[in-house]
Design a protein around this nucleic acid. Structure first.
Lengths: 214, 214
DNA sequence: AATATATTGTTGCAATTGCAACGTTTTAAA
DNA sequence: TTTAAAACGTTGCAATTGCAACAATATATT
């Protein structure tokens, strides 16, 4: 997975951040960054911590749009963050570098090798983000909870080339990701277990239905 | 909306395409490009025509992942097109320029101004694609058909700053986009009409519930 | 270690939804 | 212009789902 500063040396990284007039900020856990990024057109780079981009709809339902860990990036542009329905919430103490998006696009000093490298890394990361979002769309366009789960399992097992699927956080979060009711998901997982298609050991799910792994 | 050759003159465009060893191909309507792009790592630029990226699942359900018109781009990288479940289908006679993705990322001649401009355009387009995908995710994460429709209407009306929402293709395609059954959508649209929330005139939907427009 | 908080499993029930099957209308092709 | 194909509207019905509520674990905090 490409990171935003890959192939850029520490001295060049400093020069780059100076060139782009980057600013570093720190936030306590459970802070909202909405007022901070509102009306701005910025690229953020998480240097430490964990942040969620969420959407709160009229009924107060919160959808996790994206999760951001160390070295992840986000853009007010790409996440509709200028919209008031969106918010950035730090789930841990977090450090973020902010860069004015226009500085990236319209930099005059753009012939520097590290600047070109930065743009390349950005392209790679954006491409990867699109791939991830396509993946989620594939999954949640499935019509039944069962098919959503199976699609999710298939993608995850292909990724790791294994019949084991590990739930990275909680089943509650998984239900969120799949855009289904948690209890209904729990019920369907039980069905899949009873039909002998899967086995669940804590956060590890074992796929028993795929010929490839039997 | 940024296009891939924005701010690049025709002569420079020619130079750029030569530099990137681009190849132009033409395809008849209703062709599958799967075998063509399989195992490749390419960026495609539609110069003429209309193409759909679709996914066919185990039950033969087809999901439209993306629609591509003139000057749109696609990448085997970002669309999991290397996966056999995905396909590119031309819906009209189509002309496509193919560029080896690695040539874009690892070009040695990368200090040329038009090359930098190309990368900037690419970043803008990718950013826009992410925004679009986030939008669709917001919509289809809604739990009921009614809420999916209303969310779709809200986003569309905000975009055009108007109480009119125009269905660009067909209601069948809209149901696809929203990942719901067409007849069930039809039923819910009828309910919305009967409750006086909307009015439908052909492909034009009039929103009657939003204070902003009344 | 004790307490508070979050996660998980479960289930009844009402509401929503997909599906299938029509006939009708519109659009495209021959 | 005639014919074929696609899109649309409708509805009964069975299946799926969300919701609410609760107890039981597990995790985090003091």
């Amino acid at each position: 997975m490409t990171k935003i500063f890959d192939f850029i040396s520490s001295p060049n990284k400093r020069k780059l951040l100076y060139l782009l007039q980057a600013h570093r900020f720190t936030f306590n856990k459970d802070s909202s960054l909405q007022s901070f990024v509102k009306n701005e057109n910025i690229l953020g780079i998480i240097t430490k911590g964990y942040v969620q981009i969420i959407k709160v709809d009229a009924n107060d339902n919160r959808t996790i749009i994206e999760e951001l860990f160390e070295e992840d990036i986000f853009g007010t542009n790409m996440s509709s963050l200028k919209n008031k329905d969106y918010d950035l919430i730090t789930k841990e103490d977090t450090e973020i570098i902010f860069i004015d998006y226009d500085k990236i696009i319209n930099n005059e000093d753009n012939n520097k090798a590290f600047y070109v490298q930065f743009q390349k890394n950005l392209i790679e990361i954006l491409t990867e983000k699109i791939r991830e979002k396509n993946e989620r769309i594939e999954i949640i366009t499935q019509k039944t909870i069962r098919n959503k789960l199976l699609e999710y399992f298939n993608i995850a097992s292909k990724k790791n080339n294994s019949k084991f699927v590990y739930i990275s956080s909680t089943f509650t979060d998984l239900a969120d990701y799949l855009a289904i009711d948690r209890s209904a998901m729990s019920r369907e997982l039980k069905n899949l277990k009873e039909e002998g298609l899967i086995e669940i050991k804590g956060k590890k799910i074992i796929l028993l239905y795929n010929d490839k792994w039997i």
